[in-house]
Design a protein around this nucleic acid. Structure first.
Lengths: 192, 192
DNA sequence: ACCGCAATGGTAGTGACTACCAAGTCGGTA
DNA sequence: TACCGACTTGGTAGTCACTACCATTGCGGT
């Protein structure tokens, strides 16, 4: 509720030009109630309830597959469940909300920076899910590089999605970005 | 000068626990002089004078090579000129300064976020250097994915470098991270 | 001695965010 | 009905990053 109003205000007037007090008034609460629910102004846009189950999904993946494929398919699956299946029809309300958030995140420096940092945290979680305690540092290094590159590809896909107004299916875009970054053969199977 | 004092203070007391006024006093100037030279507190750590010539370097690279190799070798070259050649000897003063900055950047959320966003800006510049005005959107999409993944690999290398106290050569680490992300064959030639 | 200009400092304000405390609301219990 | 404790909300006052506007100082050139 507060979040919905906030994103509408941010979209209309701009993020920086909107104060937290504005958001509070629009939502009919006091500024401190806003801070109670959203620790920072940025979190009004960035907090997602969906959590980061990606890491768990990856841990459940057969370890024999190449890292890029394991991570890539987990990302695609997470996004698929997030946006839901829609084949050619209109955007769902959820997707429109995601698009609005995404546009804010990409165009506002402060939000973009924190969003990239969230990806960074996700990367740590992914590597934690892949790597055992005892494994050598080289393995961790490889896992970090692979996870980092996969998330970067995903971010590229998100930007593209926002640019084409959500016309493309997000999972397909992620698969394409992964293929562009790593070569078609490596990722081809990931999108199934 | 101001920057040196600032990084020392941040390292000793922590970034958040140090106010801009503290930095100003330590440098013997007024707070506003600090803001004159560094538009934000974060820039006290993040501003690098070295600029982003990477994009220009890439534009000068033969276009026939695969994107990943073009971007990767440019990154390695940029870092080599930044840290200088040192084969097994002690760390140079410059490298020690870079390490201190890097540790702050990695461990402080606000700095890490802005640092990742700087990489993002670099990515935009790289893609701008690679892609002509008229080229189709798919080409741009591929370039973004490749650049994004390369920068992510570079960041991983930076973290590893900070963790091993600069013992490794940074260019080698970047080459290894690229190889881990993209496969050895793709990048092998990039480090020469 | 004078002028122009760059760098510096002061003042007052805005806005994000915190700490501490007060008050209302609501479910269960005697 | 009266009471109690937990949860949620609101108020006050303060810190700190950052800005806008203006005054001052130092310094090289004429």
């Amino acid at each position: 509720m507060i979040q919905t109003r906030a994103i509408r205000l941010f979209t209309e007037r701009g993020y920086d030009a909107t104060t937290v007090t504005d958001v509070a008034e629009a939502a009919g609460v006091s500024p401190m109630t806003v801070y109670r629910h959203f620790p920072t102004k940025e979190d009004l846009v960035l907090i997602d309830q969906h959590g980061m189950l990606v890491a768990e999904q990856i841990a459940a993946t057969p370890a024999a597959q190449p890292l890029v494929r394991r991570i890539g398919s987990a990302l695609i699956e997470a996004v698929t469940t997030l946006t839901g299946d829609r084949h050619g029809g209109d955007l769902t309300a959820n997707e429109q909300f995601l698009l609005a958030r995404l546009r804010l995140m990409i165009s506002t420096p402060a939000l973009r920076a924190k969003h990239l940092d969230n990806h960074y945290a996700l990367q740590q979680a992914i590597v934690g899910a892949i790597i055992d305690e005892g494994s050598d540092t080289d393995a961790a290094f490889h896992a970090h590089a692979a996870a980092s590159a996969c998330l970067a590809a995903m971010h590229t896909a998100l930007v593209r999605w926002a640019e084409d107004d959500g016309r493309s299916e997000l999972p397909d875009l992620i698969a394409k970005a992964l293929a562009a970054a790593f070569g078609d053969d490596v990722v081809a199977v990931a999108s199934e």
